[in-house]
C-alpha cells in the first residue's frame, strides 16, 4: 500500500514534469514560447500505417489513392477516413495504409449494407413497377448524397471479413428479368455508372414481356449489369408440393438451382455467385444445395440491411415499390445501425 502511494506520487511528479518539459520546449524537435508548445512545421509525414499530408492544388481523392494505395478505386478509403467527399487544396488529410476495421463497427455504430430490390420499370403495372422518372430520381439521390453503389459480389469479401466496404455502400438488384430492365433501368444505370445485378428465372427469359438472351448479353458485356440466377420457374422453393415426397422435392429443387445456373453460364460463360430465392424464401436444404453448387451468397426479400455478420445465404433485401416516394427510398438506405457503445 505504502509503496503504491509512493509509486503514484512519483508518477504524478514525473508526469507533471514531462508536461512541463513539453511546455518548456524540451521535447523532440520543438522551439518554445512561454504558454504554447511549438511543433515542427511539416507538410508531409509517413509511417507504416499512415501518410499525413497537406494537400496541393491538383490533388484529388483518385490521384492520392492511386499514388499511396495503388488503386484509384480506393479513393473511398481516404474519403471515409477523413470524412470528406472531395479534396480541397491546403487541407490536412490522413491516408490510412492499412485498414484494421474490417467489420465496420465503430463508436458511431455498425456498418450495414442495404440491398435494394427492384422488379419492373415503367407505368401501368401498379406496385411492382417503378416509373422511369422515379428510378432516375432515386439514382440521382444516391449520386448527390455520395452513396457508393457497389457490385453484389463485393459483399462476399465483406462477409468473410477480408475486405472492408465504403461507409455508404449500397447494392442494386433487379429480379425476374422483365423487358423493362433493358429498356428503362439499364440506360439509366449506365448513365450513372452504377453496377447492378439482374436475377433471372430462366423459364421466363425470352418470353414476350421478358428480356431476351441477346439483351442479357449486351447488358452483361457492358460491365454494368451482372447476371445471376433466380430459379428456373419461380416457385416458392421452401415449400414442398402437396403430396410430394422428400425425394421428389429434392430433385425438383436441385433443378431449380442448377438449371438456371447452367443456362446463364452457357450463354455468358462465367460463374455464378449469388442466388435470389423466389419470393425470398429458403430453408436449410436449399442453402446446402447452394453451397454444394458453389454459390457464395443467397438473397431474400426480408427488408433490412446487412452487417458484416449477416448470414451469407440469407441476406436481406428491401423491395422498392412504384408507390414509394423519395422519403420511403431514403428509409431503405440504412448504412449505419446507430448505437452508442460509450
Amino acid at each position: 500500500m505504502k509503496s503504491n502511494i509512493l509509486n503514484i506520487s512519483l508518477i504524478l511528479v514525473v508526469t507533471s514534469l514531462l508536461n512541463g518539459c513539453a511546455s518548456l520546449g524540451l521535447s523532440h524537435n520543438t522551439s518554445t514560447t512561454t504558454n504554447q508548445i511549438k511543433y515542427p512545421k511539416l507538410t508531409y509525414a509517413e509511417s507504416e500505417d499512415y501518410v499525413v499530408l497537406v494537400t496541393k492544388k491538383g490533388d484529388s481523392l483518385k490521384t492520392l489513392a492511386k499514388h499511396y494505395l495503388g488503386d484509384e478505386k480506393l479513393a473511398w478509403v481516404i474519403a471515409d477516413f477523413n470524412q470528406i467527399t472531395a479534396i480541397v487544396p491546403r487541407r490536412e488529410i490522413v491516408i490510412p495504409l492499412k485498414n484494421r476495421n474490417i467489420t465496420g463497427v465503430s463508436s458511431r455504430g455498425v456498418q450495414s449494407i442495404p440491398i435494394l430490390c427492384y422488379h419492373r420499370f415503367g407505368q401501368g403495372h401498379e406496385k411492382l413497377a417503378v416509373s422511369e422518372k422515379k428510378f432516375r430520381e432515386q439514382m440521382q439521390y444516391l449520386k448527390d448524397n455520395h452513396y457508393n453503389v457497389i457490385p453484389m459480389d463485393a459483399m462476399h469479401d465483406f462477409l468473410e471479413n477480408r475486405k472492408p466496404l465504403p461507409a455508404k455502400s449500397v447494392i442494386i438488384t433487379i429480379d425476374d428479368g422483365y423487358r423493362s430492365t433493358y429498356d428503362i433501368a439499364y440506360p439509366i444505370l449506365k448513365s450513372f455508372n452504377f453496377p447492378a445485378t439482374l436475377f433471372l428465372y430462366t423459364d421466363f427469359t425470352g418470353a414476350r414481356d421478358a428480356v431476351s438472351w441477346k439483351q442479357t448479353k449486351i447488358m452483361y458485356d457492358s460491365g454494368i449489369i451482372d447476371i445471376q440466377p433466380h430459379s428456373k420457374s419461380h416457385p416458392n422453393m421452401s415449400l414442398t408440393n402437396i403430396d410430394e415426397s422428400q425425394k421428389n422435392y429434392k430433385l425438383r429443387i436441385t433443378d431449380e438451382v442448377r438449371v438456371p445456373g447452367k443456362a446463364i453460364k452457357k450463354r455468358l460463360k462465367y460463374d455464378m455467385h449469388t442466388f435470389a430465392y423466389p419470393y425470398g424464401d429458403t430453408n436449410p436444404m436449399i442453402i446446402e444445395l447452394l453451397k454444394k453448387t458453389r454459390y457464395k451468397l443467397g438473397v431474400t426479400v426480408d427488408p433490412g440491411s446487412n452487417s458484416a455478420f449477416a448470414h451469407p445465404y440469407m441476406l436481406q433485401r428491401t423491395m422498392i415499390f412504384g408507390d414509394h416516394d423519395l422519403n420511403d427510398f431514403q428509409q431503405a438506405l440504412t448504412t449505419v445501425k446507430k448505437t452508442n457503445f460509450n
Binding site: I11, L12, T15, S16, L18, N19, G20, A22, S23, N35, Q36, I37, Y39, P40, K41, L42, T43, Y44, A45, V52, L53, V54, V88, P89, R90, R91, E92
Partner: peptide, 27 residues
Amino acid sequence: ISIFSYGCTNSRLTPQADLPVDHINIQ
C-alpha cells in the same frame, strides 16, 4: 493526470476545423 495537466498547460490550443493550413497541425 497527464491529460489534465496537459489541458492546464495548453489552454490556448485552437480547435482547428476545416480551414486552409500551411503545415500539419499537430496541436
